[in-house]
Computed example of a mutant assay.
Amino acid sequence: MRTVAVVGTGLIGTSAALALSARGITVHLEDADADAARTAASLGAGTVEEPAGPVDLAVVAVPPALVGKVLADCQRRGLARSYTDVASVKSGPRAEVAALGLDTTHYIGGHPMAGRERSGPLAARADLFEGRPWVLTPTPDTDTETLNAALELVALCGAMPVVMDAAAHDRAVALVSHAPQLLSSLVAARLEHADDTAVRLAGQGVRDVTRIAASDPRMWLDILAANAGMVADILDEVASDLQDTVAALRALEAGDEAMRQGGSAGIEAVMRRGNLGHARIPGKHGAPPTRYETVVVAIGDQPGELGRLFREVARAGVNIEDVAIDHSAGRQVGLVQLSVNPGSVHQLARALAERGWDVRD
């Protein structure tokens, strides 16, 4: 692959263009908003000049509802030898492509499982897809050349290809992406008119649950509208669980001992189901989840403190598997939670304490 056209220079399109350009691919940028394309070009994502002839691959990076229309225009112009898209829903665009009578031999659906809470070309990153799954949904007549072009795109962006049926993909993302987005927003919405004192008590737990609630509603409306039925099915199941959980909590308030025991059993059951579901989420490098232990260190909010801490951990010969920071609302200090293998906990805690770090139990 030597030449690529990216049609749509938002977060995903521009990130793909940056990754390709960094690998020496000539990338031609298009967008209905000419300013967005020029912004992407100024970031080093490619050129806004039209290609002299058909490029090797065109990446249609527009919302799901626009994929068919934009692909039709690209094919009419003979923009590329092969085409793919990066829309987060696959069944709707595939049906529209078929309804428009477009060439499906040289087209393959795609969806990189990566994103950010911010949108637009200025939020783009060349490493956005590194190590992330990139779903490909070929049609029955997608030819080998087109599949290979899409696989090369995925490899150049540092992602991992996953071939799926379009409908199976949509059910999967409804469960692991679209419904969680709405649930995060619903939890965060409880904070909108909450008492200031209550909000100041927010710790890492509520920050984790509501992190993606900062996402752009306009972008998500396009995604959810294209997968509304699948997401509604998931939320119906969640709503049933919520009703059962509310009933269990009400029972805990009851004066009757049998009702309280039933309520306790209901709460324990849903939390154990949560344990089992969480345990199925792939761990580091896609391996089965590993139970790490945490070393907590207090650091001041000054430049270089976190880097200094990481260097000390490296000197101790310990690998950091994950890290989180719990910020204090009242002081210029943070608690850094270093997740490490269980066998390294005492070694690391002792080494850091000996070097003057404030290690917390």
Results as ranks from 00 to 15, higher is better:
residue 94 R to D: 07
residue 36 A to R: 11
residue 306 L to K: 10
residue 296 V to G: 00
residue 213 A to Y: 08
residue 276 L to G: 11
residue 201 L to F: 14
residue 221 L to S: 15
residue 229 G to V: 06
residue 209 V to R: 02
residue 29 L to D: 06
residue 219 M to P: 00
residue 8 G to M: 10
residue 15 S to Y: 11
residue 106 H to W: 02
residue 127 D to S: 12
residue 252 L to N: 04
residue 183 L to K: 00
residue 186 L to C: 12
residue 37 A to F: 07
residue 132 R to W: 03
residue 288 P to L: 02
residue 69 K to W: 00
residue 27 V to R: 03
residue 83 Y to C: 06
residue 315 R to S: 11
residue 333 V to A: 12
residue 48 V to W: 12
residue 348 L to W: 01
residue 267 I to M: 11
residue 62 V to L: 09
residue 229 G to R: 09
residue 7 V to W: 11
residue 50 E to W: 07
residue 263 G to A: 08
residue 248 A to I: 06
residue 359 V to S: 04
residue 345 V to R: 14
residue 76 R to P: 01
residue 123 A to Q: 11
residue 161 P to W: 00
residue 39 T to H: 09
residue 270 V to Y: 02
residue 174 A to L: 05
residue 290 T to Q: 12
residue 174 A to G: 13
residue 350 R to E: 15
residue 172 A to L: 15
residue 223 I to G: 05
residue 334 G to A: 15
residue 290 T to I: 09
residue 94 R to F: 06
residue 44 G to M: 11
residue 127 D to Q: 09
residue 170 D to R: 06
residue 260 R to S: 00
residue 223 I to F: 10
residue 79 L to A: 05
residue 49 E to R: 14
residue 196 D to S: 10
residue 331 R to I: 05
residue 246 V to S: 08
residue 253 E to W: 10
residue 311 R to K: 09
residue 154 V to D: 06
residue 67 V to E: 08
residue 285 H to W: 12
residue 44 G to D: 06
residue 72 A to C: 02
residue 77 R to P: 08
residue 200 R to M: 08
residue 98 A to Q: 14
residue 266 G to W: 02
residue 245 T to L: 15
residue 305 E to C: 03
residue 305 E to Q: 15
residue 72 A to S: 12
residue 243 Q to G: 15
residue 146 T to Y: 10
residue 59 V to G: 02
residue 194 A to Q: 05
residue 134 W to Q: 01
residue 198 A to K: 00
residue 282 P to H: 06
residue 213 A to R: 08
residue 347 Q to R: 14
residue 206 V to L: 14
residue 322 D to M: 01
residue 152 E to S: 05
residue 226 A to D: 13
residue 355 R to T: 15
residue 110 G to A: 10
residue 179 A to G: 06
residue 213 A to T: 06
residue 60 V to M: 13
residue 79 L to E: 07
residue 179 A to T: 08
residue 320 I to K: 11
residue 66 L to T: 05
residue 44 G to K: 08
residue 208 D to C: 08
residue 311 R to P: 00
residue 5 A to R: 00
residue 52 A to V: 06
